[in-house]
């Protein structure tokens, strides 16, 4: 099963910057990126190893392909690749509705949607949402989000940032908001294919972005996996992501959450019980969640 992250948001929010950040920090994980068309600079030049009309090869085994409006065919083609990628990222066009793209991805056997990430420009997003023409489209994008990356947070005063966060909380109550600068966020926050080790979130590599906090939680008592997943995805708890394995009456189950999206699936044979929970520092309360889990 190939996990798919869908990255949406309006022009200029930082989608391309985010994609480049993810590729730059791939660290051996083979990421395939699908873009609607190769824009002026879809991939930073120093990352490119080779390029033809439809495919850019990137250092470390990653690739970027343009799908020219035939997304489903591009997905079917990926299934035929000799070396399957570890994770797929779809960068949507500016007016695309990510939920529709997630729907198409989920139809095809072999793919599962990991999460919808909407990149929003902290400075302009509120004004864009008022635009006569594209305002309602932008609102629908935000409502489709599991994670909203409130980008360019360093360019606005704290009061403005707080105001936008409060507004987003009303606009898209189930999404997890993450403030960033230069779309800088650890891969493991956005993509479940990356291991969630606590040290990933120390923030040491994030000179501009507020750090993330994570906690590993042992989990031994049998539970209702759906109920645990729902609790972890409850926006009140402020988690960006949670991942792990929990024991149930029917055996070990895998839990994945990203923002308000959650999934419970079969656990692999070698899985061991335990959860990792992640929140942006100062947003989520890991102690509280750990306490809830301990009950």
């Amino acid at each position: 099963m190939l996990s798919v992250s869908i990255i949406g948001g309006y022009l200029g929010a930082g989608k391309t910057t985010l994609v480049n950040t993810l590729l730059r920090n791939a660290n051996g994980t083979r990421i395939a990126v699908l873009v609607n068309e190769f824009g002026a600079l879809p991939i930073d030049e120093d990352l490119i190893e080779a390029q033809d009309d439809a495919l850019i090869s990137i250092a470390g085994g990653c690739v970027c392909c343009s799908y020219g409006n035939d997304l489903v065919q591009a997905l079917l083609d990926i299934l035929k690749w000799d070396h399957a990628p570890d994770h797929l990222v779809i960068e949507c066009s500016g007016v695309a509705l990510p939920a529709a793209i997630a729907g198409s991805v989920s139809l095809i056997d072999g793919f599962q949607v990991d999460g919808v990430v909407i990149v929003a420009d902290a400075e302009t997003i509120k004004a864009q949402a008022e635009d006569t023409y594209v305002g309602d489209t932008i609102e629908r994008q935000l409502q489709d989000a599991d994670i909203i990356l409130l980008n360019k947070a360093d360019l606005v005063p704290q009061a403005h940032l707080d105001d936008v966060k409060a507004w987003l909380g009303k606009m898209s109550p189930s999404a997890s908001g993450v403030a960033t600068s230069h779309a800088h966020v650890p891969n493991s926050v956005l993509m479940q294919s990356f291991d969630h080790r606590p040290e990933d979130f120390s923030g040491a590599d994030l000179s501009h972005a507020p750090a993330f906090a994570s906690r590993a939680i042992p989990f031994h008592a049998p539970c209702d996996a759906d109920a645990v997943a729902q609790m972890l995805a409850d926006p009140q708890n402020g988690l960006v992501r949670a991942k792990g394995f929990v024991p149930t009456a029917g055996g070990l189950r895998a839990i994945q959450t990203v923002g308000g999206r959650w999934a419970v699936t079969d656990a692999p044979a070698d899985a061991r019980p335990g959860l990792v929970i992640i929140a942006q520092a100062g947003v989520g309360d890991l102690d509280r969640v750990a306490q809830l889990l301990a009950v």
Partner: peptide, 27 residues
């Protein structure tokens, strides 16, 4: 278990056969 706005399901839980939008129709 198909969950897609362009794929209406029948009483049996299977797609009725109607598909809306090029993403779904084309394949």
């Amino acid at each position: 278990g198909v969950n897609h706005p362009g794929v209406p399901l029948g009483a049996d839980g299977l797609p009725t056969g109607e598909l809306k939008g090029p993403d779904i129709m084309t394949p």
